[in-house]
Design a binder for these strands. Sequence first.
DNA 1: TGCTAAACGAGACGGTACGTCAGGTCTTGAT
DNA 2: ATCAAGACCTGACGTACCGTCTCGTTTAGCA
Lengths: 200, 200, 200, 200
Amino acid sequence: MPSRKSLIPAGPGRPRSQEARRAVLDAARYLLEKRGYAATTIEAIAAKSGVAKTTIYRGWQNRAALLIELLVEVVNEAAPPPNRSPSLQALRTELRLGAIALGGISGMLLNSLLGEAQQDPDVRTALLNGLFYPRREASVNAIKQAQALGELRSDVPPHVAVDLLFGPLFYRMFVQHEPVTEQFIRQTLRFTLEGLSTTA
Amino acid sequence: MPSRKSLIPAGPGRPRSQEARRAVLDAARYLLEKRGYAATTIEAIAAKSGVAKTTIYRGWQNRAALLIELLVEVVNEAAPPPNRSPSLQALRTELRLGAIALGGISGMLLNSLLGEAQQDPDVRTALLNGLFYPRREASVNAIKQAQALGELRSDVPPHVAVDLLFGPLFYRMFVQHEPVTEQFIRQTLRFTLEGLSTTA
Amino acid sequence: MPSRKSLIPAGPGRPRSQEARRAVLDAARYLLEKRGYAATTIEAIAAKSGVAKTTIYRGWQNRAALLIELLVEVVNEAAPPPNRSPSLQALRTELRLGAIALGGISGMLLNSLLGEAQQDPDVRTALLNGLFYPRREASVNAIKQAQALGELRSDVPPHVAVDLLFGPLFYRMFVQHEPVTEQFIRQTLRFTLEGLSTTA
Amino acid sequence: MPSRKSLIPAGPGRPRSQEARRAVLDAARYLLEKRGYAATTIEAIAAKSGVAKTTIYRGWQNRAALLIELLVEVVNEAAPPPNRSPSLQALRTELRLGAIALGGISGMLLNSLLGEAQQDPDVRTALLNGLFYPRREASVNAIKQAQALGELRSDVPPHVAVDLLFGPLFYRMFVQHEPVTEQFIRQTLRFTLEGLSTTA
DNA sequence: TGCTAAACGAGACGGTACGTCAGGTCTTGAT
DNA sequence: ATCAAGACCTGACGTACCGTCTCGTTTAGCA
């Protein structure tokens, strides 16, 4: 058995149950996959996981907080956060991984949460801090390095370049007017990067 | 007094009240602006508008249908559907108008509805048919014409080109990691079009 | 089918369902008998009766209000309110009927409700107005008449006389230190009335 | 510092805290007075007294047990159990004392506990054994003695006589249809005893 | 002009889920 | 061994909206 998180001073009282925490997240994941976002209620999660509603509310402020944590977990599983080799090639990889990572329930989950984020600034902040900013940081660095190496034109602000690259992917994800195919990813990369490259 | 829609045979019984319809949409709009998406419930709309819930449900299948109609109305008000001069310049205009049109409540409303669309295919279909496809059609035509005139390279599928242009805008709209500024629109246009143009 | 209570002006909107009302009271009665006061929760009543919780709360402010109505109903069933022949004999009858009426679930129910009345003045008021005062009134009148006829001494305030007669019965009911037997009722009547009568 | 109960061999481990016990009862009393029966929850008592819920449950089986102990304590404080001079005069005193003792929170507490007793036989038993039977015993003895001395007629079973005397008092206490005044106590005594006495 | 049919307002209905509260139990570390 | 602290499961609370239903009341066009 893994010893208690001794990093946290472990105040008085019975410690939070890690088993319960896991059971909740697993149940939420199961429900999302099998029955969709709307059916993934706190009530249903409690019933499925065997963890009491009160315990869930002790661990997360609301449904959104729980699902954001789950989303981050699922996404990081599918596409580990990129922390090395900030090259142009890394951008290709990140874009591809992103497309894959957001393919399953996580895409649906992200979309739904962005809907909630519209009404609740806390949700938005949590999504940005938990998911977008960390990954964006890496991509921005890759852009900067490519600019330093002369691979990309320097008159494009890195943040804008990132949006030009990732925007089309997320656009199709959100609106779903057309499917996100492997070919579409290739085309996005090619046509956008050619435009941004100094060889233009 | 506005004459009845006499194109429809007008069967027996009392005709639908156009005043009620307007009152409902106006109340929904008011509530969206003042109290947000979540508070814009059918119940609240009924109370605010003085129109009975039953009557609302006679006119729209559910809350989403009502709000989609409202969204289309508001967007078309702010940015009338582009039906002439399918040129490269039209694309610039459309992109700018889109940014403006989605600036107020309509952006929030669209985001929230896309969240619902995730769970309800009907909502998605209605959004696509009512909002996206018509405007997309115009943009695609503009791209095609520009390709025919040699202004844009021909090896880019028009649908993809549209996504490359509009993706970054919607991306920022949805995620709101950074604001959609006038400058950002300009940069998107410039860097994307330069890349897609034959002058590259 | 009994036509609508046309005594009440029947305002706008769908009228309250009398079937639902009956089903709720019947379910409450059943639960009280079979599973006791504590188990007779709104939730259980809703489940048993098939009437939605919200509908129950629309009809009664809380559990106590519902149970008071049931209590009054049950008691009036077992011992119809005495409205004639205000004689000494009527007192005997009323005392006997009271003992019988409070024998079944109504005794338990009354006790429990008096407990709640302790904490909630509204409950107390409802109990007094719905159950105690009307019947007390009749008994007081009987006493007065008997005093006028010279059957009872006149220096006893009627309200006090009523309490002397009914107190012992309720005392045993509430505390249950000893059972309320037919003999006890007889003894109460005899020894108390002998003391109160002018023949003393 | 109050020395530990050193009569008990003081086995291993930390001795049970008498301070905790007192703190619990005092907190319960305070809460009853200030915020009523419903608000006197175990949770609130624990918070107010600084004693852990676990410890409370070690000392009492449940909330009712705790409150019964408190009730007995409070009542015995206000009206010490009558253990001498079993005379007719003692009955007068006991009745008066009872009225006084049940005047404050103890009346409310007793009523509420009798409500609970309805659903829980243990509560009833505890109340009878802890409060009613001991005092009743004394009153019954007083009656018997008075009968032996010829002060009271002998054809009245002593238990019944006690109920005739105390019933009216408790009746008004429970139902609270009218206040328990000093005059009412006098009247009860006078009219009941006159009836029961051989001088009738 | 009166009949008929549908729309209207009002609001009750059966549901689902919410977030909270207290009950009584269990698990820590500290005394 | 007992304590304070506090997490745990359980069950009920009362509320908010959902979308449907029944009323009695307009409001037209047709007869």
